[in-house]
Amino acid sequence: MARFRQRLAGLIPWAALLVAILVLPDLTRPTVATEVWVFAILALAFNLLLGYTGLLSFGQATFFGTGAYTAGLLLIHQRAHPLAALAVAALAGGLVAAVIGYLCIRRIGLYFIMLTFAFNLMAYFIVYQASSITGGVDGLPGVPRPPVDLYVLAWDIRPGIAYYLFVGLIFLLCAMTLKKVVDSPFGLVLQAIRENEARAAALGYNTAAFKRVAFIISGAFSGLAGALYGMLFGIVPIDTIYWVTSGNVVFMTLIGGTTSFFGPIVGAIFFIWLAETVSVRWERWPLIVGLVFVFVIFFFRGGFVEVWHRAYGLLVRLSQRGQPKYGHSKD
């Protein structure tokens, strides 16, 4: 019975996500709503590194951009099947992450962060220079959104709302896969590395190899998100591989909370909502992001998710007021 209830409690966030996916298009434009789930995938992929493995990658845009350009080029020149384009984009993201991860993971701490950042800048300049292929600073225009042909039926994802549902579906699949990864023995070893890498090595784990695999998985999902982004706007802007995008992912993940699996999703929703609604009215909107960020770092190190936990704890305490207390309650 306890086990059943535990299972049920585990389903609540998923139910909430499903509701959010269905409700969001009523609250905002389909493009903005779609962007939310694209960045939610990216934030989850990033948090596999930061929240679970303890690696702050400041170059997530490298893989996001790699996926976006790969899928864009395939769709433009090869008229590729959208699912094939997504798969190849994920593969490309994972491949680039394998190479960059291999080089960065030899260093730790600040040096690791700076290396991921440096590779991001390099990737940006390669795309910038290769303008005959990538369109350079103007971006890669004309990315089509062909129907998702599943033999028995072809799903036309050109209408905004159809594409929104397509992205929502892929987001759910990605989130479920990543949840499986973090809950697996492999995921627990990653957390052990985050907690105490030296001890994990003393147990017999090749910690560098585990970090490399985490990097590849994160890169693959980031690449997938990038592909969805390019298809959303019909163009791959060079911003997809610019370091500011890497910074934004760090922002949304920290604001949402790195200590829970679902935190980064909340952060992505908040960040995109702020960027797309406030920015229209007030061009200095990043100031708000900055203020929220400072506030979160000072008072809620666990991000929005911690706000929720604290509010819940407060409710419980208030409801128990006046009742006799035995022993100490835990905060």
């Binding site: 492999f186 017999g204 784990y205 695999v213």
Partner: peptide
């Protein structure tokens, strides 16, 4: 777990 499978394969 390290005793039975220390490899980094996430299967």
């Amino acid at each position: 777990f390290a005793r039975i499978r220390p490899s980094s394969f996430p299967g």
